[in-house]
Nucleic acid binder design. Structure first.
Lengths: 188, 188
DNA sequence: TTTGACAGTGAACGAGCGTTCACTTATACT
DNA sequence: AGTATAAGTGAACGCTCGTTCACTGTCAAA
């Protein structure tokens, strides 16, 4: 199985953030001729494991650096995942829209618990001052930052927590939307 | 500002999964000499925006392709993020431990709602047959797949939902742990 | 107006790239 | 044993790489 080659190339890419050259693969695979590498690479290209540039340089295919997506949890995990048939998802593409406006924050407090956002969760937010009614936003109210539901009615704007123990926040002086919530991440 | 060059290089990297060559940057930046590029790249290296290989090839620095991490939500977002001072997090590194054992599934049903895992959430799981008491697992009970809390007492094993409307599941014939939950992702 | 720094041009260079060809060694089938 | 197929070697080739040098134009400070 040439899968070991794929693994080695992948590790190299993870470490160096670029694909190896033929000479580097030669050392990586413990060959003494670049041609041996060329033949193996040729097969990997046919198998769709890697692809090539217009410069002849190796580039990762889509399924590289991604996580297999197996559908719904009730369907379970197949014994062996035949790589051809499964979808894959790139976490960056999945979670990051406009890269330069995207930030990550850690949630502190339980005011959004009824929206199933707990203390310790990571949130991915996108900087913007435009948000719709009922979107979860990071906002600055009278000088303080907080994450809440944004409420709009006419030209009135206020914030609502997702926790019955807290009350809505009506701004005294100012309410500025800083960012909108795009994703929540919880690690176990 | 040379930030526009950085943006163009970054876009190229996103699209091609490798850094551009000097000739490619020449076209990208609309120069007529590679030397013009070389001088700009030299400055970007000094600024720590990019780095170089032993081959002279460009490689992205750590802060490339990552999301700035700004601490807690109560601290808010600074007006301008000075890139030196903020941590960044790579989503892959953050969420994927053992790559070859990691899979993604979509949650269907509300049996884990009290653990704040909703229908439609994505879960990242790691294939293993070992799990501890109270870990959330994907398991196969009597031929069906499900996600629940794993309970262990002595040599007894059963599953518990995080929803009072459902009852614990005691296996009739078999209970096999397939994978353990590593992370939950919710998109908005 | 002179001067110095800076940004960009254009041509040249050696090095390493991916590719190719002829050849040798191993593996497997008859 | 004999033979075809695959796997690996080693040297050569042309091409593009990143680098370097001398040079031109531009702009601002003196």
């Amino acid at each position: 199985m040439q899968n070991i080659y794929q693994t080695k190339i992948y590790s190299f890419y993870e470490k160096n953030k670029r694909m190896p050259t033929y000479s580097e693969m030669m050392k990586l695979f413990d060959f003494k001729s670049k041609n041996a590498v060329a033949k193996i690479v040729g097969k990997m290209i046919l198998a769709g494991i890697v692809a090539k540039d217009h410069l002849g340089r190796l580039i990762p295919t889509k399924s590289f650096g991604e996580v297999p997506f197996l559908g719904f949890v009730t369907a379970g995990l197949p014994a062996t995942v035949d790589e051809e048939l499964t979808d894959t998802m790139n976490l960056d593409d999945l979670l990051v829209g406009k890269k330069e406006l995207t930030y990550m924050l850690e949630v502190d407090g339980d005011s959004m618990i009824d929206a199933h956002i707990e203390k310790g969760d990571m949130v991915i937010v996108e900087k913007t001052s435009n948000a719709k009614d009922m979107q979860i936003v990071i906002a600055e109210v009278d000088g303080e930052f907080t994450m809440k539901y944004l409420r709009k009615k006419g030209n009135k704007m206020w914030l609502e927590p997702a926790n019955k123990n807290y009350k809505p926040i009506y701004p005294e002086f100012s309410l500025n939307v800083i960012a909108v919530l795009k994703a929540v991440i919880r690690k176990y």
